[in-house]
Design a protein around this nucleic acid. Sequence first.
DNA 1: AACTGTCACAACCGCCTCTTT
DNA 2: GAAAGAGGCGGTTGTGACAGT
Length: 222
Amino acid sequence: MGRSPCCEKAHTNKGAWTKEEDQRLVAYIKAHGEGCWRSLPKAAGLMRCGKSCRLRWINYLRPDLKRGNFTEEEDDIIINLHGLLGNKWSQIAGRLPGRTDNEIKNYWNTHIKRKLLARGIDPQTHRPLSAVAAPSSNRQDKMAASRSSRSPETSCAGHSSDGDSGGASASSMPRLGSSIDLNLSISQPSQQKTEAAAVDASSTSYSSDGKKKICLCFNRLG
DNA sequence: AACTGTCACAACCGCCTCTTT
DNA sequence: GAAAGAGGCGGTTGTGACAGT
């Protein structure tokens, strides 16, 4: 539709970041904070697209990032949150401090998918493979599915078609065995924001028997 | 040693959503 | 209310590392 590109592509570097570029970016953000990504590259003396700077900072350079392997506990959290949220990587990442959406997305695609398949569980629906109809391998179908999953009405991919939309309780959904209790609650739409359903917040706590509990509150279900 | 296949992950692309004008 | 700009998100790709033959 004629939208101008986010940056002047002819004058931007692409590909892997160099140490010097990283240093420039870190130094600039340390000095000025995260501000306008569009103007940041110029201000920091980087021949990069603003989006690229943002991604580099968020996924790699941020000081609070937790590098290294995912723990079993993190695996479980990701699997359960994915069952609830679908491919909402940023929301899942928001509940795993120190992890980024990109990291989780990659980890899901490379490790967890296989892990679930090995257990005989469909990674998309979280149901036993035998109960899942043959998935479409058609690329266009996948794209269409991803598009529809981004609409608010179907934000809980894989469960919106369950037919039990009235009882939005995690315990009513078939779920792989886990030590994590997903204690969901639905509140009245008291806050008058008209956004579509959103998982507003979650908190992690421990029950008396030491089991980890994650509380997810769906504040605004449409 | 050379080749091939697989895996892991950083980075890019295009679209969507939110905010501002 | 419409249009434009900017940020954010999710899917996909490119590539280096490693393992197997």
